[in-house]
Each structure stands twice: as structure tokens, then as C-alpha cells.
Design a protein around this nucleic acid. Structure first.
Length: 795
RNA sequence: GCCCGGGUGGCGGAAUGGUAUACGCGAAGGACUUAAAAUCCUUUGUUCGAAAGGACGUGUGGGUUCGACUCCCACCCCGGGCACCA
């Protein structure tokens, strides 16, 4: 018996596959295309741990399966390498980010190759390659020209440690998603993309996508659509500097008669002051204090409600009542109009505020006890004039009409803060000219390359380190030829990943972002696999970016990713997230060296359902290694005749075929184990059937199957073989075991030929000793017969 | 608070109305061996019983059904998303 030396065999085949370019993308006519995509990794300094390849293994199994089924498969890999992690790593280790990225990419690629993935490396891309980011910049320019990119000075989230502004998507519980620092608000000049223009389409088109419900739900929450109405309250004031009316948005127009005051945000009050509203010291101080607190406040902190009465009165458009206008710290400035109608009887927050400041609470919806709490449910109207008695749902429309409001839809989604005050990102291709204003860099001058710098540490001043490189910053204005300055902000980490799936199709293209003919062939992505952490970042940004490209005719589909699957996390063996911090990281290199890539691949697919989070267990991995080894050993029993159970054999082909399609890899492996167990103790195994078994195993364990395939005399790779079919007539045994139940409890069992009639089964069942004692002297009310499975007597 | 998932042996898990615990790990016993490792075979939900056999058993409590891990109602616990969004 020859020894199974996984290291030698796996290295041998990896080398051979590379040499033969075995996994080169094909575009054979008349064959189905399938685009199988992994969320490309961010090459960090730590290298891969065993959790990372879980998704890659799944897509690799799937791609290999599709190739064997005759499909044209596009299965590429690349590197998302701009952004904070690479830059922070570079700063910490005092090397240039470019060098750090090169080093990390090399390491990642080595690690991936050890696992035996079938990527077409001719398609490799890197978002930090100028030939790549040329087109990231190009798309930004198109957005700028369409008015979707604009400059803003609004206060935004600022990470004091990373020293850059952030998008709301980059926060986690009010902390910087990268470094965990508490994020502050800071007014900053910044570039913003109008993703809100796409809110309705981003929401609506989710319905068409074959994505996990939880991801779709996260996006729906994030987009946050609310239907309601906008009302205009006439302001009763003699101050001519004040607006004459105030708009509010509400989802509860049915409660309009219960509005007892109007609340506005401090930001809105400040705007009024800026335009000349004369205010007393108390109001002035309150606004200043509130604005200051808001800047310093952690994003998830909910402070005690504060407010001050402006003395201004507003006329309720429903009943003409004059109610007071308050400046408060609980109305959000960035949502709706920055002002609300407060209905204390039917809103928790307004109730709390009204109680604190002794404002009236008027019940307009029946159903609660408004002395104790706000009632936010629905019900019949009261105190609402002619609408008394009407149901709240109906009243929403009626009162909106009556009070001159208009129906309106609001979204929570905010525009995408798109600039970072950092070095390691795509330069924003704009030039500031004193005469012409903001001028786009002409397309022929793209890419605007990131210049070499001595110091790339962030400045913390709100300017990127690029601002200090005068020879780069100072340029001629492309429009008037006068003095100009380059935009020094760079793009966020997520920019490059918004369209990388298009670049894979044609990675060397210099003329256009994508050749539309090639795009039409491969898009959309048929199978996209990655982690759930991208639900409201990458997966929203990329959809937005793609829809924009669709609108300008660059791509042919409205959505980039038709089918999405999320792999579950592999946790440390201690149940904690695998991380250097907890010292529970398992390195795939060690596993491959000690147990083999095939064992790792089988284990990661066998450990549980693909979507489930499961703790790593090297003990359990041993079972997968044993499986591989048993196949090796059993291959020595091959002969011309065989004793293989035909039924198990055909069931195995069917089960593996169906399970790979559905990403049920764990049960596919278990079926192959059942097959292998059925060979145990048998002396004769035919080459033909064993080869078929190798073929269905090949996507999971590409190395050992290739080696055994060669040993059996083949010169062409097993991975180029056709996927086997099974004999439908040989999926079930001719004899079945029938369970006999009395009142639903199993009391006996016997064997029968398949498809026996009820009479025969009944007679046989009742003749059993074990059954007789249960039915003796009792009246059988009825018998339920489930063909080939069981018979149940009700006594 | 609202919205998604999920809860099955000692452990990872299988079964989507029809014999609960497939497959794997671990454990116990046996074979081989001078011995150990490796490998192979057997047993392995709990409990009562010498055995035959019985009772209990898929988070908890109810319901539908001849029959429920599976469907319905209520609740508890765990994981994730959103959250002063009017």
C-alpha cells in the first residue's frame, strides 16, 4: 500500500494546473455562461485565517461543478487594496502603503494557491492600479457632470484617530468601524454623492433579487422608507426676517388635530438666526449650547430632552389653533424638514417633552390611556371636528386633503460622504480654479495618479496629506489656463469595489470602462458569495454605482448581483470571533501542511450548513482527513467486477448533484461518506464506478481525485471531465421497510416488496406478534397507509 | 422598542407532515501488534428492567392532526440588523 503524501501530491497538481492554465475562462459558443464571484479580499498584514476561505471554497466547488457541466465559467479573484486598513498598517510598520499592499497581496495569493482554487489568474485585478482607478475616477466625473457629486460643508462624522471624515455607513454604534474610536461631528468641506436620488429604486428593485431575506431586510431598514404627509404651518410673527411658514413631515396625518406645539431642531433655529432673526439671550444660548453638544455627542447617545419656547405661534392647518414653536434637542436636522408637529398624546417623544414642559396633551385617537402614556396605535378619532369617529387609517388621507397637506415619502438614507482626508485612496479628479470654480479633469488626462510622498500620515487639519505636495497640487486650470489647485481629498475605501466585477470581464481594457458586448455576455453576476458585514455598505454602494452606470448606458443590467449567498463565520474554537486579539487564530498554511488542502476543503464544507456560524475544531477536521485517506486506501481494491450497491451509488450521484446546486455541501459530503462506508469490507470495486465517484468528489477534493485519476491511466485532467449522470430507475431498493404504528406510535416493523397494496400490508402488519398484543380485544377504527413507509392503526 | 434568523444526543449537525438523532467528532469495548500509534469491527438520547419490553424525549405551555422537530397561538432564551427617522 502506497502512502498518501498530501504535500507532494497537492504541490504537484497546483504546479501542473498553473502550467496548463487549466482554469482559463472559456467563452465557447452554445454553452451556458455563469459568473461566479467572491467578494474580493482586503489584503491586510495579518494574512488569511481559516475563516476567510470558507466562501472561496464554496464558490470553487460550485465553479468546478459548473465547468464539468459544460458551462463557460468566469471565476476570478483580485484585491481591494485602497483605504484605511492598508494605510494604517503602513503607518504602524513605517513602510509605504504601496509596498505594504504588494507584500500583502503576494502573501494572500500564496495562501490561496495552497488551497487549490480554480481562479483564472489572468483576470486578476487590483483597485490601486492606476489603470484600474482611472475608471473609478472616470465614473466619479460622470456623476459630477450629472450633478450627483456635490460639495458640502455640513457637519459630518469625524474619526479623531483616523483623522478623516466618514460616511454614516462607516459607523458601528457611534464608533469608527475601523479603529473603534468614538466619532465626533465636525463641519468639513467634503464631496458627497447623491445616493438618495436612487433611494426608491434601490428599495424597489430589492424585490427582484435572489438574496437572503435578512440582507434585503437590512437594506430596507437602512433605506428607511416612510409614507406620510407634509403640512405647512403659518407662523404668526411680526419679525419680517423669519419665514412666513414652516413645513413639517409626519407619518401620522390622522393625529393633526392633536398637535399642541411645533418642535424645530437647533440647526434650523441657527439658520433663522443667520438670516436675521432677532432672539433674546436665552434662545441664543440654548441654540449655541445644543449645537455644541451635538457636535461632541457620540452618535448613539440619547440625551435628556431639552427645549426653549421661541414665543412664535404657528397655526395648526387642521383646526386653526395657534400653538407654540419650541427649539428642541430631539428633532433631527438631517431628516425631513428639521421641524415636526408634536402630538404628545400619540408619540412617546413628544409626550415626554410635553410632560417636562407642561404642554397640553390632547387625545385624538381612542384606544389608550393618555394620562399615563402616549398611545401610538390606531383607532377611532375624537376631538377632530368632522372627522370624529373615523378610523385612523382612513383619516390619514382625508385629513391630509382637508388641511392642505400633500402626501410625501421620506427616506432615512443619507447622501454618501465620499471624501477622505487621507493619502491612500483614489484622488478625486477635480481642479479648483479661482475664476472658473470647480473644473473636472479632462478625461484624456485620467488617471490622476496618486503622487509619491515622503509623509503620508494624516494631517488632522481636515486637509489630506496631498495638500502639502505643491508640485502636484498646483496645476493649470484646464478651462482658462490660469492658476488652479487639485482637489486633495481622496475617495473612500468602498469606491473601488463598486464596479470591480465589471473589470474582471476585461481587465486590460484601456479604451472604455467596459466593452458593452463583453459586459452583455457575462453580466449580471450569477452567484455572488461573501459575508453579511457588507449588507449596508458595499452591497448598497455597488448597487447605486451600477444603476448610475446603467443610466448613462455603460452597462446593460439594472442590478449587478442576481443571486447572493452569505457564508457563516468560522469562529475560534473558544466560540469567540477569530482574531489576533483573542489569540484563537488558526492559520490555513498550518492546516494545509499538516492535513492537506483537500482535508481543509472537505472539512469547511462538511462542518455545517453553509450559512451557519460554527466554531472551528481541529478534532473534527480529523474526520475529513480520514475520509480522504480512506479513499486513497480503497483505490487499491479496484478490479473489473464489483460488489458496489447500485442504489447507494446512484443516490450518491443524485444527492451530490442536487446539493451542490443548493449550496448544501455538508449533506453532499455525508452522502459520499455513506457511499464510502458501503464499500468497506467489499473486495471488488469496479474502476468505472470508482471513477464516477472520483468525479463527483473532484470539486471538493481536486488534488487527490486528480492524482488517483492519473493513477488509473488517464492523461487528461479529471477537472475537464463531464459531470456524471445517474440511473433514475436505480434510486430506490425493491424491498422497503414498513413501520407499523398503533395510534401514531411505532410498535413494529417488517419488510415488503415496493408498492405493495394496502390490503397486503395491513394483513402482514396485523399478523405480527408485536402488533397483536396491542390490537387484541380492541376495535380498529381506521388504518392509514402511507405507501412504502408506514401503516398506522387507530384503536 | 421594531424587523429578520435560530434553539434537536457529550459536541458539529441530519430530517420541512410519515420509523427523530443520518454523516462526522468524542467516549467505551474488541481485533491486529511484543507494545503503542494508525487501521478495522461493535456499542453509544435519557430512564425503568436480568431480559423481553415499556415510559420519556427536538427551548416552554397550549392547539390542529390518525400522526408534529416540521403547521397554528402564546411565551422564554440566543445571534444579527435598525433605532429620538416624527
Amino acid at each position: 500500500m502506497t502512502l498518501y503524501n498530501h504535500n507532494e501530491i497537492e504541490k504537484k497538481w497546483q504546479k501542473r494546473w498553473r502550467k496548463d492554465n487549466l482554469y482559463k475562462t472559456t467563452e465557447k459558443k452554445g454553452q451556458e455562461k455563469i459568473y461566479v464571484l467572491d467578494m474580493f479580499p482586503y489584503p491586510s498584514g495579518e494574512g488569511l485565517h481559516v475563516g476567510h476561505p470558507k466562501g472561496y471554497i464554496a464558490t470553487d466547488v460550485f465553479s468546478r461543478f459548473k465547468r464539468m457541466n459544460g458551462c463557460n465559467v468566469l471565476h476570478p479573484m483580485g484585491w481591494d487594496a485602497f483605504g484605511l486598513p492598508a494605510e494604517n498598517y503602513a503607518i504602524k510598520n513605517k513602510i509605504h502603503p504601496r509596498i505594504a499592499v504588494e507584500k500583502n497581496v503576494k502573501r494572500y495569493k500564496e495562501q490561496l494557491e495552497m488551497i487549490g482554487f480554480s481562479y483564472d489568474w489572468e483576470k486578476e485585478i487590483n483597485t490601486t492600479d492606476p489603470a484600474y482607478y482611472k475608471w473609478t475616477q472616470w465614473t466619479f466625473l460622470q456623476m459630477f457632470k450629472k450633478g450627483l457629486a456635490y460639495e458640502s460643508h455640513e457637519p459630518i462624522n469625524w474619526c479623531p484617530s483616523c483623522k478623516t471624515g466618514l460616511a454614516s455607513e462607516d459607523l458601528e454604534d457611534g464608533k469608527c468601524e475601523r479603529c473603534g474610536s468614538i466619532v465626533e461631528k465636525r463641519p468639513l468641506r467634503q464631496w458627497v454623492l447623491k445616493i438618495t436620488d436612487y433611494a426608491d429604486r434601490l428599495l424597489k428593485d430589492l424585490d427582484e433579487l435572489d438574496w437572503p431575506e435578512s440582507i434585503k431586510e437590512s437594506q430596507r431598514n437602512w433605506i428607511g422608507r416612510s409614507e406620510g404627509a407634509e403640512f405647512e404651518f403659518i407662523l404668526q410673527t411680526t419679525d419680517r426676517k423669519l419665514p412666513t411658514s414652516l413645513k413639517v413631515f409626519t407619518t401620522r396625518p390622522d393625529t393633526l388635530f392633536g398637535a399642541t406645539f411645533v418642535a424645530i431642531s437647533a440647526e434650523l433655529a441657527q439658520k433663522w438666526i443667520d438670516t436675521g432673526w432677532e432672539v433674546n439671550d436665552e434662545i441664543k444660548k440654548f441654540v449655541e449650547k445644543t449645537l455644541k453638544k451635538e457636535l461632541a455627542r457620540a452618535a448613539d447617545e440619547v440625551p435628556e430632552k431639552e427645549g426653549v419656547n421661541t414665543g412664535i405661534l404657528a397655526k395648526n392647518p387642521a383646526n386653526g389653533e395657534e400653538i407654540s414653536v419650541w427649539i428642541t434637542n430631539y428633532v433631527l436636522s438631517g431628516y425631513g424638514t428639521g421641524a415636526i408637529m408634536a402630538v404628545p398624546a400619540h408619540d412617546d417623544r413628544d409626550f415626554e417633552f410635553a410632560k417636562k414642559f407642561n404642554l397640553p396633551v390632547v387625545e385624538v385617537i381612542k384606544g389608550g390611556n393618555i394620562k399615563e402614556n402616549a398611545y401610538i396605535g390606531s383607532g377611532g378619532l375624537v376631538n377632530s371636528g368632522k372627522f370624529d369617529g373615523m378610523e385612523s387609517e382612513k383619516a390619514k388621507k382625508e385629513i391630509t386633503k382637508f388641511a392642505g397637506g400633500k402626501e410625501k415619502v421620506q427616506y432615512k438614507l443619507r447622501d454618501w460622504v465620499f471624501s477622505r482626508q487621507r493619502y491612500w485612496g483614489e484622488p478625486i479628479p477635480l481642479i479648483h480654479c479661482e475664476k472658473c470654480g470647480i473644473v473636472p479633469v479632462p478625461e484624456k488626462d485620467l488617471p490622476v495618479e496618486l503622487p509619491e510622498v515622503e509623509h503620508y500620515e494624516p494631517t488632522g487639519t481636515g486637509e489630506s496629506p496631498l495638500a502639502n505636495i505643491f508640485e502636484w497640487v498646483n496645476v493649470k486650470c484646464p478651462k482658462c489656463g490660469g492658476e488652479g489647485r487639485r482637489e486633495t481629498n481622496t475617495m473612500p475605501q468602498w469606491a473601488g469595489s463598486c464596479w470591480y466585477y465589471l473589470r474582471y470581464i476585461d481587465p486590460k481594457n484601456e479604451k472604455t470602462l467596459i466593452d458593452l458586448k463583453k459586459e452583455k455576455y457575462w453580466m449580471p453576476v450569477d452567484m455572488y458569495v461573501g459575508g453579511t458585514e457588507h449588507a449596508t455598505r458595499h452591497l448598497i454602494y455597488a448597487r447605486f454605482w451600477h444603476k448610475f452606470l446603467y443610466d448613462i448606458g455603460t452597462v446593460s443590467t439594472e442590478e449587478p448581483f442576481m443571486k447572493l449567498k452569505n457564508q457563516g463565520l468560522i469562529m475560534g474554537s473558544d466560540g469567540k470571533k477569530m482574531s489576533k486579539r483573542f489569540g484563537n487564530v488558526i492559520n490555513p498554511d498550518d492546516i494545509v501542511r499538516n492535513f492537506g488542502a483537500d482535508a481543509l476543503r472537505v472539512y469547511e464544507t462538511f462542518m455545517g450548513p453553509f450559512e451557519a456560524s460554527i466554531d472551528w475544531s481541529t478534532d473534527n477536521l480529523v474526520g475529513s482527513r480520514r475520509f480522504i485517506e480512506r479513499i486513497w486506501n480503497i483505490s487499491e481494491k479496484i478490479s473489473l467486477t464489483d460488489e458496489i450497491d447500485d442504489i447507494i451509488f446512484n443516490q450518491t450521484i443524485k444527492k451530490v448533484t442536487d446539493d451542490i446546486k443548493n449550496f448544501h455541501f455538508n449533506t453532499a459530503i455525508s452522502q459520499m461518506m455513506i457511499f464510502l462506508n458501503s464499500l468497506e469490507g467489499k473486495e471488488k470495486i469496479s474502476q468505472e464506478k470508482f471513477e464516477t465517484f472520483l468525479k463527483v468528489l473532484a470539486p471538493f477534493a481536486p488534488h487527490i481525485t486528480e492524482e488517483l485519476w492519473e493513477k488509473l491511466g488517464h492523461t487528461r485532467s479529471i477537472h475537464l471531465e463531464k459531470w456524471p449522470s445517474y440511473d433514475v430507475s436505480k434510486l430506490e431498493h425493491n424491498t422497503v421497510s414498513i413501520a407499523v404504528q398503533i395510534n401514531g406510535r411505532v410498535r413494529g416493523e417488517f419488510s415488503m416488496p415496493r408498492d405493495a397494496t394496502e390490503e397486503v400490508v395491513k394483513a402482514q402488519a396485523l399478523s405480527l406478534n408485536s402488533i397483536q398484543k396491542w390490537v387484541a380485544g380492541k376495535n380498529i377504527k381506521k388504518a392509514i397507509y402511507i405507501k412504502n413507509r408506514l401503516i398506522n392503526f387507530v384503536v
